[in-house]
């Protein structure tokens, strides 16, 4: 193998690692949509809350990173619960546009709130993670760590949804919400739990992102659009579809960046997305897992 091939291999591996992060990002949003039929427009900003939680606890208060990370999962889980209880629940029986507008309002609120408290500066944990070398391959440890964490998070969610009664009920609600009361399931409670779990996933995603990039009040714009695209492309609410779409998109971006440029790679990804939407408006994969 020539040196060139190693670069390409490295690109593909980085694409896979990036795909894991995107897949996890899509998961929380997708779960909430699949079960509650509601789209959190402010999802990326909710992830940002987690990034600031980690930054604040770790850098400002000096907590160990592990505890700050756990606090992000819990804290953003509570944010998810509150988003449902305070914003979505009162609007649940009104036209969907109201929920979009309300969570859209939340997006601007969170951005302004973050600016108010932390200012517009870019903040980071000041970590310096090693670059690992395998033969002639160079892989950044933070990416590997992010990928591993994403994998653990996704497996945990999978086990929760398939091995527990409440997880089974969450999947059941996505298939037939009207008969849940016949099973003795209180759907309002299931929605709250789903929102908390969706928030927890966002809190976990925040850990992965804050390991690799600076946080600032408008960071949601950098990964929000691609997250939404992945969910829609995989078939909104379809967890497995979103998972696969994340890896397709990450490879396009990774390989595109290698051969041309990052900007153009994103353009290609967006064009592909639009093309998919014309050919299969319901997404590449069937709606809902």
């Amino acid at each position: 193998m020539g040196i060139f091939d190693f670069y390409l291999l490295e690109t593909i591996i980085n694409g896979v690692l990036f795909g894991g992060v995107l897949a996890l990002l899509a998961l929380g949003l997708n779960l909430v949509f699949g079960v509650i039929d509601v789209i959190w427009i402010a999802y990326a900003e909710i992830v940002m809350v987690g990034m600031y939680i980690i930054y604040y606890l770790n850098v400002v208060l000096g907590w160990p990173l592990v505890f700050a990370a756990l606090a992000s999962i819990l804290g953003v889980g509570v944010v998810g619960l509150l988003v449902h209880a305070l914003i979505i629940s009162p609007l649940l029986d009104t036209p969907p546009i109201n929920q979009l507008l309300a969570t859209g309002g939340l997006l601007f609120f969170l951005q302004s709130f973050a600016t108010l408290i932390f200012g517009a500066e870019f903040r980071n944990l000041g970590l310096s993670m090693p670059i690992l070398q395998f033969f002639e391959l160079y892989i950044s440890f933070s990416r590997l760590l992010a990928f591993g964490t994403a994998l653990v998070g996704m497996i945990a969610l999978y086990l929760f949804l398939t091995r527990t009664y409440i997880g089974t009920a969450i999947r059941a609600v996505a298939q037939d919400r009207e008969i849940m009361s016949l099973m003795g399931v209180n759907t309002r409670k299931v929605y709250l739990i789903t929102s908390a779990v969706g928030g927890g996933m966002a809190g976990l995603a925040a850990i992965l992102l804050v390991l690799q990039q600076d946080v600032h009040p408008f960071i949601g714009y950098t990964f929000g659009p691609i997250t939404f695209m992945i969910c829609v492309m995989g078939g909104l609410g379809n967890l497995l579809g979103g998972f696969l779409a994340a890896f397709i998109m990450s490879q396009i971006i990774s390989i595109g960046s290698f051969y041309v440029s990052t900007e153009l790679a994103y353009v290609i990804a967006f064009i592909l997305f639009i093309a998919v939407m014309f050919i299969r408006p319901e997404g590449l994969f069937q709606r809902r897992a």
Partner: peptide, 24 residues
């Protein structure tokens, strides 16, 4: 327990998961 009109099983869940929901 109410077995509703048109059965209303959870179509994309296994038989056993459907039964599990009956024992929620």
């Amino acid at each position: 327990a109410h077995c509703p009109e048109n059965r209303r099983l959870f179509p994309r869940m296994t038989v056993e998961d459907n039964l599990r929901m009956g024992a929620f």
